[in-house]
Computed example of a mutant assay.
Amino acid sequence: MDTFAAFSLDMRTLNFVMILFSIIYCIGLLLFSQTQKSIKGLRVFALSLLVMGSGPLLISMRGVLPDWGSIVLANSLIAVSFQMIFHSMCRFRGVDTKYAHYFSWVIPVVVGLNLYYTYEFNSINSRVLVSAFSIGIVSLGAAVVVLNGKNKDYPVAVWMMTATLTCYGIFMLFRGVHTLNGPEIVSFMEADIVQKLAFLSSIFLIVSLSFSMLWMINARQVEAIYALSYFDPLTNLRNRRALDRHTDSLEGTSEKLTKKQCVIMLDIDRFKQINDRFGHVSGDQVIRSVAQQIKRTSGASKSIYRYGGDEFIVVLENQNLDRALSVAESMRQRVLRYAGIDGIERDISCSFGVAESQADESWDELVARADEALYLAKQKGRNCVQSASLESQWSTAV
């Protein structure tokens, strides 16, 4: 204890700082939530910080307010704030809020025991014990929720939030054991270093949880911007911009392909007639249906791009022409068999052009040869696969 004695902390100062932090972070997060209304749990979390700060505020008014306000209500508000944090973590991380409801028994227990240990058997130690164990249990439960959340958030931020709640919960349980085995506290504001550290750790909790949450929200926004920039909203395939970015990595400084590539180009047969006869809404549904089938066929959606309109391009790295022809034929058969929408009685089919990269060939040259093969497939009667190589052709006419 001599080491702790040298480490002086003023309880009233810590109390004031905690109140100040809870108010500032609450206001800041509430204002931020106005621009992030789609983020579930953010507003509840912000309000929980205000409720958390209200508890110490009422505790600091001991002697001014009656016991029901400065003791019972104060400790009850602190318990409610952690229940709100638990609830907000469930919503924020995509977990069913029923798990937060499982811990709702904590609040009436805390209220009842604080009433008893205030009016029937006045004991500061008992009240601290109730508060410490209840907060510790709820904090550890919230840590489990954060760690096992369904939302795909930034892993480092998730671990930071989990570690914060876990460490805080463990410390609160230690605080409870320490209080149970320690001497009777005469005045809470004059309590030992462990009780003072409870305020310091609460300040750290507010800062760390707020920072982690903002970190995850920012990561979600970056991911959303990336999705808008590089993914086609209709098919959820990568778009032309993503393809351009990918092909930049395939070409060296000489603008020649550095690895063997096979390209499959395809488009929907007589798509203009579908649009003219059935409308653009049906046309979009056909594009989406075809995209789903070719994605399921290839087994590698990262290599499929929507090239524009009803055209798609598949990039197969380190594959030979025979393999690319086989993949294209499997796609053709699957589209013919499974692609289609209600209201369009005609079969949906696609034509395919396949090309394998040659030595000292650029990406644009490779795509141009695949496009020529696709044009040849159209001339052959559509619904077939054609190779850009004269030596090896795979054709399946209607």
Rank of each mutant, 00 (worst) to 15 (best):
293 Q>S: 08
82 F>C: 06
335 V>Y: 10
348 I>E: 03
71 I>N: 05
396 T>Y: 12
280 H>F: 02
322 D>I: 03
75 N>C: 07
136 G>Q: 14
127 R>I: 04
178 H>G: 07
166 T>G: 07
371 D>L: 05
324 A>L: 04
252 G>Y: 11
380 K>M: 14
374 L>E: 11
141 G>N: 13
257 L>A: 01
94 G>I: 08
50 L>E: 04
54 S>K: 06
314 V>S: 00
90 C>T: 10
235 T>K: 05
20 L>I: 01
171 F>P: 02
264 I>Q: 04
342 D>T: 09
277 R>V: 04
139 S>Y: 11
36 Q>F: 05
265 M>P: 05
329 E>H: 12
148 N>A: 09
186 V>P: 02
96 D>H: 15
72 V>G: 05
5 A>N: 14
63 G>Q: 13
55 G>A: 13
145 V>K: 12
124 I>K: 06
109 V>C: 08
357 S>D: 02
6 A>T: 07
81 S>G: 10
67 D>W: 08
323 R>L: 02
62 R>H: 12
42 L>E: 02
40 K>D: 09
283 G>E: 06
215 W>M: 13
367 V>M: 11
173 L>W: 15
333 Q>L: 12
363 W>A: 01
107 I>F: 11
330 S>V: 02
200 L>I: 04
92 F>K: 09
328 A>R: 08
224 A>M: 09
69 G>T: 15
127 R>Q: 13
103 F>W: 13
286 V>S: 03
122 N>H: 14
374 L>D: 07
129 L>G: 02
169 G>N: 09
295 K>T: 15
264 I>Y: 04
54 S>P: 02
13 T>G: 00
240 R>P: 00
2 D>H: 13
176 G>E: 15
99 Y>M: 08
307 Y>W: 12
186 V>T: 12
320 N>H: 14
196 K>P: 05
173 L>A: 07
155 P>S: 01
81 S>P: 03
